[in-house]
Write a protein that binds this DNA or RNA. Structure first.
Lengths: 211, 211
DNA sequence: GTCTATAATTAGATAGAC
DNA sequence: GTCTATCTAATTATAGAC
């Protein structure tokens, strides 16, 4: 809804590419709000102001549309790069801030779309796993040379997923409506500790069972 | 599948309650695996070995069945109590261990069912929010007298949700297949720090923007 | 490129026999 | 209580006119 190029060029560009873009944009919105199974092609078509048949004309199947909507990476890439090029110092803060700032301004981001879709759609589950591995785990693990690099990166994934789910999917308070900076000052150090903190002892307190 | 009372009492108990229980059990399994929208009444009936019509006979609607399956709290209650009755000491460990142990032995727990269903079903989203508030946030916040008690409890929610999603929904490695004790020794102190750690400064490093 | 059918399938839900 | 048959509505997807 934000920045629509509504000046329809009369001649050039045959005019079909415009509909395709509107469909994609709308698809990202709805998939991001209701997930894969919760979003119908008809709903997307209606919201985009086109005929349902056009969706299939452009993207073949619903899955094809979803795939196109997911890999449209017009938001994250440039921001993500700057996280890792600055080294391990204060990287926790940068991860949290970048995550929240990107997700706050548009919940039609791949991370949200996939997180909403994964629970009911097997293909989305795989896509989300791959997305997280490629975009986060691999980069984070590559910066560490500790033997437990994978586990530490996994802990960061837990923070990111937990934050995304609590703030954007389930909307739990006060996480859902806290200012970005508040969450950065809380979760930044936490993420930093996951990556560069000391390795904990196996079981400090065995916690005796029973009464 | 674990403990089925298969000795069908000939006369007493009319014999209908048995089917009802089988349906409920199966419903928890499937809702926990595929979420609300990803599970059909017919699939539940088939897996339970009964006719689809019986499901509606007992529970009226699909939503009714889901509600009944969710509020069947046969797993968590006793374990949850012991977490909070032992005070703030090592509570992080207890929270993480209890969570993982309960979820590991049956992913048909309310937490998983709701977390799988919430992203595509509005009613489940609300139910999950209420469940978390009632079962976790309120109890945790009540133990703290700090002014930021709500935020700290929210941070614990992020840990729990992130752990649940990463391990049971999206199955991200190495979180998905790490032994419980490994995760306890990692996330226990983390959760503890969320609750009893020092309050962080607003913005330690303002992170200058641009090049 | 765009739209009007319409096919093929599937899901939730009901009526009524047994 | 249990099952057969069925209704209704919605969905993905296709064929073909314009």
């Amino acid at each position: 809804m934000t920045e629509h190029d509504d000046h329809r060029r009369p001649g050039r560009w045959r005019s079909g590419a415009e509909s395709k873009q509107r469909i994609l944009q709308t698809a990202r919105d709805l998939f991001g709000q209701h997930g894969y199974r919760g979003t119908t092609v008809r709903a997307i078509a209606a919201a985009a102001g086109v005929d349902p048949a056009m969706v299939f004309y452009f993207f073949g199947t619903k899955q094809g549309l979803f795939a196109a909507a997911v890999e449209m990476s017009d938001t994250v890439p440039p921001a993500i790069e700057s996280i890792f090029t600055a080294g391990l110092d204060a990287i926790g803060e940068r991860i949290v801030r970048t995550l929240l700032e990107n997700l706050d301004k548009s919940d039609r981001t791949p991370l949200v779309m996939l997180t909403r879709s994964a629970p009911t759609d097997d293909r989305s589950e795989t896509l989300l796993r791959e997305f997280i591995d490629r975009e986060i785990t691999d980069r984070v693990a590559a910066m560490l040379d500790a033997p437990d690099a994978a586990l530490r990166a996994g802990m960061v994934n837990v923070q990111i997923l937990g934050l995304a789910v609590a703030r954007y999917i389930v909307r739990i308070e006060p996480i859902a409506s806290s200012p970005v900076e508040d969450l950065v000052s809380r979760f930044g150090p936490l993420v930093q500790h996951c990556l560069t903190g000391p390795t904990p002892q196996p079981v400090p307190t065995p916690t005796p069972v029973g009464a």
